[in-house]
Amino acid sequence: MLTGSCFTEHIGNALGEWKFDVLQNPNGILFDPKSVASSLISYVEAKVYGEGDLFYLNELWQSWQHHSIFSGVDKADVLRGINASQQRAHAFLQHADWLVITLGSAFSYRLVENGSAGGEWGQAGLAVANCHRAPAQSFQKHLMTIEEINSAFDSCLYQLFYFNPGLKVLFTISPVRHIRDGVVDNNRSKARLIEAVHHLVNKFDRLWYFPAYELVIDVLRDYRFYDVDMVHPNYPATQFVLEKFVQQCLDAGSRELLEEVKKIVIARKHKPFQPSTQAHRRFLQDQYQRAAALAERYPFLNLEEEMRYFSGE
């Protein structure tokens, strides 16, 4: 399972394409430690959301604990989507080998009193995972202390390890720059995340740290590795981080298997200029045989989509 900021999805999408069994961001993208820890506890507890957990804003029913991908015009549909995701997360996390947590910002947003008419948007002080374009005066922006971050995850991790005794956790800090906070506060935020995570890694023996932030900021350290917004790492930067991730987090046997899987995935994406030729039919047959042989050797690999494509179904 992978959860956290949008950088989580760069890693998660790649792992999914490489045929790892992956579930990512059951609440949608989350940025701050409070939201991430609370969502993980809700998966452990198999929390069921009700109508009281939703609010109406901008013609949509929304949840303060979820990304806007769960929002919708029909309240019942929104609840069904949220609770179905909760059930998947509960079942997946119970048997997961690894949990990858990517933290993006130490800033937490909390509802203020009188932030909405009659308190219909929720109780004052409630930490929100997404502001859903509500007026800025509806929130208090709070830079979490290192102690607050440690406390949130300390309780969360104990519950996770009780729920799944075999679970291992990998922390990363997102290299995405939160410039809207200002360059000074962005660095203060990242520094608190780094310090808190290293405290946790030193405390628990099933926690590790992968330096995605440092690889982009201190190894690449050049704006040509950022997108046009100067905030998000671009494709070469994310590929560099993924290469390091594979080198550091996969054993030799897995890296060797990964290269075979990549060949099949690339072949599946091949767009033929002349699909009716004998040469293309031989190509499909060869790739089908390669995929079938790999699936037989490694039954845990799900190559059904590729095999259907190569067989012409």
Score class of each variant (00 low, 15 high):
Asp251Ala: 08
Gln289Val: 09
Val241Glu: 11
Glu304Tyr: 04
Ala295Ile: 02
Ala291Trp: 03
Phe245His: 03
Tyr235Asp: 10
Leu242Val: 00
Arg281Cys: 08
Glu305Val: 09
His270Ala: 14
Lys263Asp: 09
Pro236Tyr: 06
Tyr235Gln: 12
Glu243Met: 12
Arg308Ala: 03
Pro275Ala: 09
Pro275Thr: 07
Asn234Met: 02
Pro233Asp: 05
Ala293Arg: 15
Arg290Cys: 03
Val261Trp: 00
Phe273Trp: 01
Gln287Arg: 13
Phe240Leu: 10
Pro299Ala: 07
Thr277Phe: 08
Thr238Val: 15
Glu243Cys: 10
His232Asp: 02
Glu306Val: 01
Ala237Tyr: 05
Glu305Arg: 13
Arg297Asp: 07
Arg290Trp: 05
Gln274Lys: 11
Leu301Pro: 12
Asp251Ile: 10
Arg268Pro: 04
Tyr235Gly: 05
Pro236Arg: 05
Gln247Leu: 12
Thr277Asp: 08
Glu243His: 14
Leu257Lys: 09
Ser254Phe: 00
Pro233Met: 02
Lys244Ala: 08
Ser254Glu: 11
Pro275Glu: 07
Val265Tyr: 04
Ser276His: 14
Arg268Trp: 07
Val246Ile: 13
Phe300Gly: 04
Lys262Cys: 01
Ala252Gly: 08
Val231Cys: 14
Tyr288Gln: 06
Glu259Asn: 06
Arg255Val: 02
Arg297His: 09
Val261Asp: 01
Asn234His: 00
Leu303Trp: 01
Leu257Met: 08
Arg255Asp: 03
Glu256Gln: 13
Gln248Ala: 11
Leu250Phe: 11
Arg297Glu: 13
Lys271Arg: 15
His270Ile: 00
Ala279Asp: 14
Ala295Gly: 13
Glu304Thr: 05
Leu258Thr: 00
Arg297Trp: 01
Gly253Val: 03
Ala292Ser: 15
Leu303His: 02
Asp251Asn: 15
Arg281Pro: 06
Gln239Leu: 12
Lys269Glu: 06
Glu243Val: 07
Glu296Thr: 13
Ser276Thr: 12
Leu242Met: 06
Leu294Asn: 09
His232Val: 04
Asn302Gln: 09
Glu305Met: 08
Gln278Met: 13
Lys271Ala: 11
Gln289Ala: 14
Ser254His: 04
Leu242Arg: 02
Ser276Asp: 14
Leu242Lys: 03
Ser276Cys: 09
Tyr288Lys: 09
Arg268Glu: 12
Met307Trp: 07
Ala237Arg: 03
Glu296Pro: 06
Glu305Pro: 00
Ala291Met: 03
Pro233Asn: 05
Thr277Leu: 10
Gln287Gly: 05
Pro272Lys: 08
Met307Val: 00
His270Cys: 11
Val231Arg: 15
Ala291Asp: 03
Leu242Ser: 04
Ala267Cys: 06
Asn302Val: 06
Val265Cys: 08
Pro299Asp: 05
Leu303Met: 04
Thr238Arg: 04
Ile264Val: 00
Lys271Met: 10
Ala279Ile: 12
Arg281Lys: 14
Leu242Glu: 01
Cys249Glu: 06
Asn302Thr: 05
Phe240Glu: 09
Glu256His: 08
Pro233Trp: 02
Ala279Ser: 14
Phe283Val: 06
Glu243Gly: 15
Lys271Asp: 07
